[in-house]
């Protein structure tokens, strides 16, 4: 069976600064893969490249076995099949919560408006946001906004979700509600690739952890193996620094 998302030898530089230096990665159906690594190691860039929001220099990205980084492929068609959630929510401030969620199903997927609304309300209800459907995003807490952003990504029924540090911008007491939602999605069997700083959460939901260091995945493995017995010095140093930071 081919992977839902596959990344083959992807490189990317900004100017003459290499940011991704040959990434290989596969996310299979119902799998969750977590990207960890220091800030600046290239996690966001990799996710943007997979969603074709940034152009890669070399290599291939495949979605369900189809090469999508070919210039002949229309990027919007590809993005419609993936859901992306950003660190800073990026909700559309001029639209209500419900309008944020139905915009893409109606405009990009040409779904029936009533059907899209019903689906959106169902998702909002499921994640405890039904009573905020008519509000503007700036009336919501950060945790609520990020949950709406996840619902917006889910509303197009994507093949996989790309989550970029979805809790990093949140106040500590709001992190839990967003992680609970991601946990739910994992239980539903959603295929996910997530960049995260929450190691215990990564250990809990991810089937595989990839440690990104200066644009390369230097170590990967099951959570228990990577967190309990990391083989590479860089991985050990990164994990030790995180532990120290937590103790302070």
């Amino acid at each position: 069976m081919s992977a839902v998302i596959e990344v083959r030898g992807v490189t990317k530089a900004y100017g003459d600064k290499p940011v991704l230096r040959g990434i290989d990665l596969a996310v299979h159906e119902h799998q969750a893969v977590a990207l960890i690594g220091a800030s600046g190691s290239g996690k966001s860039t990799l996710l943007r490249c997979i969603d074709l929001l940034d152009e890669i220099d070399d290599g291939d990205v495949l979605l369900d076995g189809e090469v999508v980084t070919d210039p002949s492929v229309r990027p919007d068609r590809v993005r419609r099949r993936l859901g992306m959630v950003f660190q800073g929510y990026n909700l559309f401030p001029h639209l209500t919560v419900l309008e944020n969620v139905v915009l893409a199903p109606v405009r990009a997927h040409r779904r029936d408006r009533e059907e899209a609304r019903a689906h959106a309300l169902e998702l909002l209800d499921r994640f405890g946001l039904a009573d905020r459907a008519g509000d503007r995003p700036d009336r919501l807490s950060g945790g609520q906004q990020q949950r709406v952003a996840i619902v917006r990504a889910l509303a197009t029924r994507p093949r996989a979700l790309l989550l970029d540090e979805v809790t990093s911008a949140l106040d500590p007491e709001l992190v839990g509600e967003v992680l609970a939602l991601v946990r739910d999605l994992k239980a539903d069997g959603m295929t996910m690739l997530l960049a995260t700083h929450e190691m215990s959460f990564a250990a809990e939901v991810a089937d595989e952890i990839c440690f990104l260091h200066e644009g390369l995945i230097v170590e990967r493995g099951a959570p228990e193996q990577l967190f309990e017995a990391p083989e590479r010095e860089e991985t050990r140093r990164f994990l030790r620094r995180l532990l120290d930071a937590k103790r302070l």
Binding site: R79, M84, L103, H109
Partner: peptide, 28 residues
Amino acid sequence: ASQRQAALAVGLTEGQALRFVILPQAVR
């Protein structure tokens, strides 16, 4: 720019992103 990125990420075309996301905010 993150608004354009979010609009593209949900699957809108460049033109749709302009029309439904960027212009309404700009005009206001």
